[in-house]
Amino acid sequence: MSITKSNAINTLLIAGLLFAALCAHVLSEPFIITMATKIAIFAIAGIGLNLALGYGGLVSFGHAAFFGIGGYVCGILASHARNFEPLTTWPFEFSGTTSMLVIWPIAIFVSSLLALLIGAISLRTTGVYFIMITLAFAQMIFYFAISWPTYGGEDGLPTYVRNSFPGVNTLNPIEYFLICFVLLLITLILCSIIVNSRFGLALQAARQNVRRVTSVGIDVYKVKLVAFVISGGITGLAGALYTDLNRFVSPSVLSWHTSGEIMIFVILGGVAHLFGPLAGAALFIVLEFVLGGFTEYWQMWLGALLLLVVLYAPKGLMGALNASWRSHG
């Protein structure tokens, strides 16, 4: 695949998303803007997972844990700030915040920390065991969120209004979209840098040949763990953004369906393609909208479509696009 052509597809994707949101704004279609925002957020979550799954070969079926924890960090901080109950009294009193600039780093930190814990244990296993243990950890947190009543339990936790960002009216759909869009750009750039760095080289090599990477003196476990932590942090940021989009967070963001969906974005778009998750998330959400307009049972058709993709286009959308572009160009 030629680099310039795939760059053209990437540019088209990202410009398309921006253009769609801006058009929707001009035409006063807030619903479309929300859809575009959702795409941007899910793409960030997918980019996070792609780093572990696509580049590192770590098939995590538990990324809902990071997405959900990011979401809950956002919800919990905001709810404490609004009801003035201190979140902690020691070592200093902290009563939450409604500033996105504070919420994001905390969400990233907490979900990275969780990824460190989960990864440290899970990476002792490989193959199916890894898939299942990551799933199990996510379920553990899911059930905890359901049965822990302080933050709403099964009913979830509303945050009522969006958190604030200096100089921006976050409740205006297009302005919140732009925040998410810029974060998407930053995530994409960051990821492309990481993938091409020494660390990225070692990570991709470790996916293909553990023995070889070990034999040149690189600690594969450490490389994978660090990748898993970064991956969890990025996905956690997406979770925080998602809470603000909905002004609500509930245990459903922690459910294994969420893990499955993030995985679908990655695979639908094309594993280990930098822009794959964006393509996948866009396709998924547009499909949801289009199919949902035809039938209440749209998930059935989505399932059928996914099956076709897995069976007949295993390289995903980006793979197919690049291939057809090449054969026609």
Partner: peptide, 24 residues
């Protein structure tokens, strides 16, 4: 003959088909 990733995704898709089909 496929990797675990494809298997997970395809059978996840099957769940969607089965569940929604049954709901239908």
């Amino acid at each position: 003959s496929r990797g675990h990733l494809d298997q997970v995704l395809a059978t996840f898709a099957l769940i969607l088909v089965f569940s929604e089909g049954t709901r239908w």
